[in-house]
Simulated assay, not measured.
Amino acid sequence: MIKLLTDEQLVIQLNESNKRAFGEIYDRYWYKLFCIAYHQIGTREEAEELVHDLFESLWNRRDQSNIRHLSSYLVLSMKHLITNFIKSKITWRKYKEHILLQKMQEASITDNDVEFTDLSQALDAALKKLPEKTSKIFQLSRFENQSVKDIAKELNLSEKAVEYHITRSLKILKDHLWIYHTPN
């Protein structure tokens, strides 16, 4: 008997909390709403969930709704749910991308720290292999930024001797630290 009712009559009975009227609305419109959602979302499970959410909302707000055209109301409600669903997916994806980017940056910083530590240790080891005077001249030149003239004066050497020690230390360090060389 309920199947013979018009949409308007079903809405009136729905407002009166008639579960059979709700069931008839569900039977009439479930597939249409599912097709709309599935076409927009692309997954069966999510489309079914949206249809379920729409009918749950329809039942929960049955006494508050002022529905004039049931079919139009349901289709517009579904489109509204789909829009919100897509927005939430976009927001969630942006959030996940942000977290992923943050983790990549943290990993990069950690990798850089490890590489710097490794390079520092390798440099210290290589400097220990240099003769004491050559190592001292290299450190004054490169780490303390002293000029060849100042180093020569401080160590009582000729400028040529200081240049020789710097050149020699650079060659030895280059040979020992070749693994850290980048083509840049």
Rank of each mutant, 00 (worst) to 15 (best):
E115Y: 11
E132A: 09
Y95A: 11
H80M: 10
L81Q: 03
H69I: 10
L74R: 09
H98Y: 12
A122E: 15
T117V: 15
Q121N: 12
T110N: 10
L101H: 12
F138D: 08
L130T: 02
D124Y: 08
F138I: 08
N60S: 13
T91W: 05
H69Y: 09
L76E: 05
S65I: 13
N112P: 05
Q102R: 13
H69M: 06
L127P: 05
T134V: 14
K79D: 06
M78V: 03
L76I: 02
I82Q: 01
V114H: 01
S120R: 01
W59E: 05
S88Y: 09
D111W: 00
M78W: 04
N60T: 12
S71I: 04
L58S: 07
D124N: 14
S65N: 08
E106C: 04
S65Y: 05
P131M: 12
W59T: 02
L58P: 07
K87A: 04
Q105M: 06
D63S: 15
E106L: 11
Q102N: 09
F138K: 03
S72N: 04
L81V: 01
L70V: 10
K133M: 04
K136P: 06
K128F: 11
W92H: 13
L127N: 11
R61W: 03
T134C: 09
S135P: 02
Y73E: 10
A126Y: 07
D124P: 01
W59A: 03
T134E: 15
N60D: 12
Q139N: 09
N66F: 08
F138A: 02
S120L: 04
K128P: 00
L127E: 03
K79I: 03
Q139V: 13
A126F: 05
